[in-house]
């Protein structure tokens, strides 16, 4: 039987608990909402100072609520409040400028350093591809047409005359073509950067597609060199290639190496779990690859503009070698270990 009595309702824990802490939660909710809407800058310093305190008190409220209260709405509210506050306190990356600074001073060179073995492998694969293609084309020039994709050689094939080949190497730009040069540079950059991203991402399939890309890159290189070398233009052609090629090929090798790293981590995880190794490899390799986009932008400028305006062999070699040494020094110069690989 139910009976009606004139007495206060039994207070449940949630009621007492809400009365004691609700203002704190509301304050935290207000600050977090403001940060979510307009970022840290849109919130007064006073609020930022109390944020961690309020966050910890909300966390402890959540723990207490879970153990003592059956008010589902209260627990759900505190869960989402704490989660949102957590991401604002722990999950937010540092400012873009500091991230960028850290990227260039620490994390990128370090990520490339970690890839030195894979980079060496990528170099050997490229060189092997180049040598094989060189020998193939020297013994039988028809190989050239097998190796090179249609239309990419623009007449630079074994049948071309010395005169023509020479003009492709030393043909400087007239001033009215400056706009075309810049366009050419951006085209080369976006094309090569896309290749760099592919060779990273394709490493996921246990390195195989990346090996293919890197070797093929070497094959094209070797075939081209042979065409010019057969006409006695090797020195000039290599200079034509070197001015940007040291940067460009190096960048492609690094991004290939990044692909190798994730492929190897997935194929041979060693003692750790495959997922953990993949994450560690993926993050650091991605940094190395992300940086190659910058290298390829530099290479695009050197190729699109520098090469067309600098036509002496000596200057081209000097620029190419200086760039390579510069990159080496930048990446492999020993630096203090600050622990974190971003």
């Amino acid at each position: 039987m139910t009976a009606f009595v004139q007495a206060p309702v039994p207070l449940v824990n949630a009621t007492r608990f809400r009365q004691a802490h609700e203002s704190d939660w509301e304050e935290l909710d207000r600050i977090v909402t403001a940060i979510e809407r307009s970022g840290v800058r849109g919130v007064p310093e006073q609020s930022l100072l109390v944020l961690p305190v309020l966050y910890r008190s909300a966390l402890s409220s959540l723990s207490v609520a879970r153990e003592t209260s059956l008010d589902k709405s209260l627990v759900a509210y505190l869960e989402q409040l704490c989660t949102r506050a957590y991401f604002q306190i722990y999950g937010v990356p540092t400012s873009a400028l500091r991230q960028l600074g850290h990227f260039f001073t620490r994390s990128w060179p370090k990520a490339v350093q970690l890839l030195w073995k894979e980079t060496l492998v990528a170099f050997v694969l490229t060189a092997a591809g180049a040598i094989v293609a060189y020998l193939l084309v020297r013994n039988n020039p028809s190989w050239y047409y097998v190796l090179m994709p249609d239309g990419s050689s623009q007449g630079r094939d074994p049948t071309a005359s010395v005169q023509f080949l020479k003009s492709t190497i030393y043909g400087g730009a007239s001033t009215d073509k400056q706009g075309a040069l810049a366009f050419f540079a951006t085209f080369l950059f976006t094309h090569n950067a896309q290749i760099a991203i592919f060779s990273f991402a394709l490493g996921f399939a246990f390195c195989l597609p990346t090996v293919g890309l890197i070797v093929y890159n070497g094959l094209m290189l070797g075939a081209m060199i042979e065409v010019f070398a057969a006409k006695g233009l090797a020195y000039g052609f290599v200079g034509w290639l070197m001015i940007h090629g040291t940067t460009e090929l190096y960048a492609i090798m690094i991004s290939g190496a990044a692909g190798f790293r994730i492929g190897l981590a997935l194929a041979f995880p060693g003692r750790q779990s495959r997922a953990d190794v993949a994450v560690a490899a993926g993050r650091s390799a991605a940094i190395a690859m992300g940086g190659t986009v910058v290298m390829l932008a530099v290479a695009g400028l050197l190729e699109g503009i520098g090469r067309q305006t600098v036509t002496s062999d000596g200057a081209r070699y000097t620029i190419g070698i200086a760039m390579l040494l510069g990159w080496f020094a930048y990446f492999y110069w020993p630096r203090r270990d600050d622990g974190a690989v971003a």
Binding site: P93, G282, I287
Partner: peptide, 11 residues
């Protein structure tokens, strides 16, 4: 649960 790094986002 750590900070979301640039490397992770790029990857």
């Amino acid at each position: 649960g750590s900070r979301l790094t640039g490397g992770a986002v790029i990857a």
